[in-house]
Every structure is written in C-alpha cells, then in structure tokens.
Design a protein around this nucleic acid. Structure first.
Lengths: 156, 156
DNA sequence: AGTGAAATGATAATCAT
DNA sequence: ATGATTATCATTTCACT
C-alpha cells in the first residue's frame, strides 16, 4: 500500500492520540469525515495501522523497577531461538523484547515489583534455562518513547 | 490513587485496544457505561492512564532498519546527562531511549531508512558529539512489545 | 475511484437520583 | 454506581468530481 501526505498526517495524529475523534482527524487533515474514516479503515486493513494501545504508568500497576536484560544463548539454531523468543513473550514481566545481532542475542525490557522480584525472575526465566549461556542485567533509570513520526519522506 | 480489580480490568482492555468503545468496556467489566466513563476519566486525571498511541508498521513509514545504540558518555554530571537526554528525544530517528545504570549510559532504539542512513545518523547524533565517549550499534532483527498486563496483584 | 454533504443510528457525556 | 437525558460522534447513503 502506498501512502500519500494525508495518510501520513492521519498516522501522525493517531500516533500521538489514538482516541482522537474521526471528525477531528478529518478537520486537522483538511478532508471530509467520511474520507478520513475510509482512509483509516484502509490503513488498518493494509496492516499499516497495527493497533491502538493505552500507555499506563508503571508504578500504578505494581512495576517499581525496570531493567534491560541482555541474553546470550548457547546455541543458535533457528528452532532454539524461536522457542526462546516465544518463552519471553509468555512472561508477564517482559515489557518488550529485541532480537538483535551481536554477542548477545536478546535485549529484554522487563518490569518488576522490586529487586527481589527481579532476582527471582532473572533466575527462573533466564539463568536456570539450559539454552541460556549468559545474562547481564542493567537497571533502567528512565524510559521514554517517542510518539512523533519522522517527517514526511516526500515523493508523494 | 488506589486501583481496584475493575480499574485494573479496564486498564487491561485499553492496553490491548485503546479504541474499545466505552459501552464495551462497561459490558466486559460488568459495570454501567457511565461508571466506566467515570473510572477511565479518573485514571486519566490521576496519570495512571498516560495516553493512547497507534502502533504503526515501521516499513510503511520508511523505516527499513532498526538498531539499538549503546552510548557511553565521557562525563556524568547531571546537567550533561539531561542535556544529552533532551538531544535524543529531539531526533526523529529515535524511537525510544533507556537511561540505564552500568558502563553504558543510554540504550537508544533507532529506526532508519537503511544502513547508509544509520551510518550518517550515528555519526551526526552520537559520534561527533563531544560528550559521547563511545557507541556500539546492534542491528535489531525483530522487536516485539507485550501488550498484556501482569496479573492483578491482589490486595484489592 | 475518491471525495464531500447530509441523514441516520450509535455512542459518549451529563445530571439527578 | 446507576439510568434517563442531551449532546456528540461514527457510519451510511448518495450526488458530484
């Protein structure tokens, strides 16, 4: 699917505020509400718009501590990597995971109650697993997401 | 602000789908629509609910490559760290940044067009800056966010 | 095919209880 | 916390470009 300037503007608005009413979306991009609706619907169907998610204050849901855990696997067969990847996504402490190139295979963003929880979790989810060769845990002081879209690349 | 089981259920639903209509929120949590509205409003005011953001397919907005850049600063005065942090958030290539404890000071999740763009960006935004002592770039094969909330901690 | 204006039905917000 | 009321919004239809 090829996007034009207006589609991009819609994406930018929804990225910043996913609950912006359709008529506002239309007004801010200079198109009719029905057109805005249609364009957003098409972008959802084309999987350009993947979903809408609330951002929640970690402390409010019992996350007192965040960490980035670097994980190195012992072997790197496709099956083993995929299996570990699935394992990660099943853990409620895992906020996000990055499968990366380099000495470490995964960077895992975790949210836990406190340092006791972190220790228990790191042991159970990583250290005690056979396929894990090495982990390194970094405390996260602050985490911030950028909700701005890059400038329109041009090319219409 | 103290949350109960129902507030938590509302958060879980909004985390998964921030555009879920209020009446559906109410039905799925077993409360009246007006009550659901009131609870969500209160959680927004209390900054438990920080915002709603669309998730967009990177490829659709010209992001062909993602990387995690570890940045080590030369000095660590508060002013310098804050200044660099603000610098990061101004860059449209920065998707997220983690200020961490350890040898490296920041982990920066970046999204770029291609490897040329990555090289140019890494030079301009990191290497050429005086306060940056060292960077290390890891290619991201896959990135996945967990949109499930941890189980209700109990304690009502 | 895509857009825009108007009409309809659904939803959100308000208020009194 | 709820249910009735009012206001706002999403969605469809259709004429137009």
């Amino acid at each position: 699917m090829v996007l034009d300037r207006i589609d991009y503007a819609l994406l930018r608005l929804l990225r910043k505020n996913a609950r912006l009413p359709n008529k506002d979306l239309a007004a801010k991009t200079g198109i009719a509400p029905s057109t805005a609706l249609e364009r957003v619907r098409r972008m959802r169907e084309a999987r350009v718009l993947l979903g809408y998610h609330a951002e929640i204050a970690p402390a409010a849901i019992g996350i007192g501590l965040q960490a980035m855990v670097s994980v190195r696997l012992a072997k790197h067969s496709r099956a083993l990597v995929d299996c570990f990847h699935r394992h990660l996504l099943d853990l409620s402490e895992v906020l996000a995971c990055y499968h990366v190139a380099g000495a470490d295979d995964f960077l895992v963003h975790v949210g836990v109650r406190d340092s006791d929880h972190l220790r228990d979790f790191a042991l159970a989810a990583f250290t005690e697993r056979e396929e894990v060769a090495h982990i390194e845990t970094r405390l996260i002081f602050e985490f911030q997401r950028n909700v701005e879209l890059p400038p329109w690349p041009g090319g219409d």
